[in-house]
Design a protein around this nucleic acid. Structure first.
Lengths: 104, 104
DNA sequence: ATCGAAGTTCGATAGCCGTCGTACTATGGA
DNA sequence: TCCATAGTACGACGGCTATCGAACTTCGAT
């Protein structure tokens, strides 16, 4: 049995709006964000339908995590990601809602 | 005497959230947005203090305009830009506010 | 112990884009 | 008319980054 672990990510006060916007300004990553928004309990990155290979997928997940947009914890061999809604809503109230309200 | 003219820009319904986020996810452009937010009556791009040359400035202004973030009209030889607040607030309520609420 | 599944990391590549200088346009003033 | 000012357009260049394949790690199951 393995120990569930949270992957390294910035603290709330370390999150920079530029990094967040840059992270969100990429079609595939935006797609990921939307999938996460629809799965409040979190989702394994492999379970998100994306038009890229696994390695590219991992790359985008890492970008989003390091920007502070999502958090990832391990569950066996799977890595479950969730939106850092509370942090983002506190730092930039309305931003996430505004983005997600866009028609897809 | 010349005729004041509005430079080409997308209609509200043509604005895509990806383009907006991509436009905002660039430090210089974010700086422009903040300057515009502080000048509701509009501002000439030359009057914004930016760490880039005039041509780069023009490039960023064009990106922002074509993404639908700002509107530009001519006044003599000057080009006055203003945030498209109403359009953005309608399409993505809270997004602009969230971004601008970030500490600089 | 072996295997498969989930995912990451690394190196390489190709395309995008931020930057600049230069040339150009257009407007207004002398 | 001539010139200065405000700004754009274009071409070039360099750096960033999205993408991939291949090798590797980790865990769970058989």
């Amino acid at each position: 049995m393995s120990i569930s672990k949270v992957l390294p990510q910035p603290d709330r006060e370390e999150i920079r709006v530029e990094a967040v916007l840059q992270a969100l300004g990429e079609p595939v990553r935006l797609q990921i964000i939307r999938a996460l928004a629809d799965a409040p309990e979190g989702i394994a990155c492999g379970d998100i339908d994306l038009p890229v290979t696994a390695s590219t997928r991992a790359h985008h997940l890492r970008m989003l995590r390091e920007a502070g947009v999502l958090t990832t914890h391990t569950e066996g061999t799977r890595r479950i990601s969730t939106l850092r809604r509370a942090d983002l809503d506190t730092l930039y109230p309305g931003l996430l809602t505004g983005i997600l309200s866009a028609q897809r």
